Simulated scan of single mutants.
Amino acid sequence: MPQAPKPRASRGRSLKAPGASRDAINRSYPRGARRKRETRARLLDAALKLVAAKGLSSVTINEITEAADVGFGSFYNHFESKEGIFTALIEWLFEEFADTLDRLAAGLSDPAEVIAVSVRHTLLRAYREPVWGQLLIREGLSPRLLSRGLGLRLLRDSEKGISERRFVIADRFMSVITVIGTVLAGIAAELQLAISSKRTVRARKVLRSKEEKFAQRTAAIVLQAFGLTRVEAERIARRPLPTVPDAPTLP
């Protein structure tokens, strides 16, 4: 998902690890199974917080277990390695976001607008939550991309546009890869810009306005990759964004 800029504290809503809320855990599970789920949730929550504070590559298993108040050996009852816990964390975060995009697009009939809304929300969330953006860049370069989550939705939505003759493209697969590369490059550029900018209230407001315009321009470029004219692509990319619904917490 190239190396991303070192993350900093999120400016928007904080990331929530899967199962981080104990109220979300199904109390009908036997005590042993419930404890195992609770321990796994604590490990994931601790890993996410450490990644936000230190960056992905700097976190150790020992730090995760210390932060989660879990014995070092117990870690391996849930995950095979540090890479394993990061994979589980990434999979949940982006499945959750992909489901959010589906809810956002539920009332949209134009496949082009569905794509534009998805691209814009992806870029804006990466801007609000730099750790999330860094993880998306990491995931975007993984072999899993087109088999689940955001990649799978992009393939689905592009197929719908093609079947309805809304999109005219010579090579479906290469068009999707081009779109993914455009979005990831945009996230990497905007994360670097946000990190290097001064953190004054005025600067944040100006940057936010630039972010929204950048997300619109990126969405227009993506739509042109699917065969729309520049004028129509820009018009669709400037339409008001649907409101982001609350996402459920994974039990």
Rank of each mutant, 00 (worst) to 15 (best):
E113L: 09
L43M: 13
S74Q: 12
S10H: 06
A185G: 15
K54V: 10
T87D: 14
V114F: 00
T229P: 06
I61K: 08
E91M: 08
T39I: 13
L146D: 13
K16Q: 13
L44K: 00
A17Y: 02
T60R: 00
A170K: 02
T243M: 07
A116T: 06
V231M: 00
P242E: 13
R148G: 09
R208I: 10
R217I: 01
I64D: 04
P7I: 02
D171R: 02
R165N: 15
V117Q: 02
T65V: 11
N26P: 11
I236L: 06
E234C: 03
R230D: 12
A237E: 13
N26S: 14
L191N: 02
M1E: 11
V244A: 10
S10V: 01
E159R: 14
G149I: 05
A116G: 05
K205D: 05
T182N: 10
R138S: 03
L223E: 00
K36L: 11
L43Q: 09
A220E: 04
L152N: 10
I25D: 12
L193P: 06
L56Y: 11
A24R: 04
R13H: 03
F79A: 13
W132E: 07
V114A: 01
G140H: 01
V168I: 13
A68D: 08
T200A: 04
A116C: 08
T178Y: 10
M1W: 06
A220S: 02
V206K: 14
R40P: 12
P30F: 00
S28F: 08
P248I: 03
A105N: 15
E83P: 03
V244E: 15
K36S: 14
Q216V: 02
R31S: 12
V51C: 05
I236S: 02
R204E: 14
G140S: 00
K6P: 09
S81R: 02
L15A: 04
L191A: 06
T122Y: 01
D23P: 00
L56P: 07
E113Y: 11
S109W: 11
L101Q: 07
E63F: 12
L108N: 04
R166M: 11
G12E: 08
K36W: 11
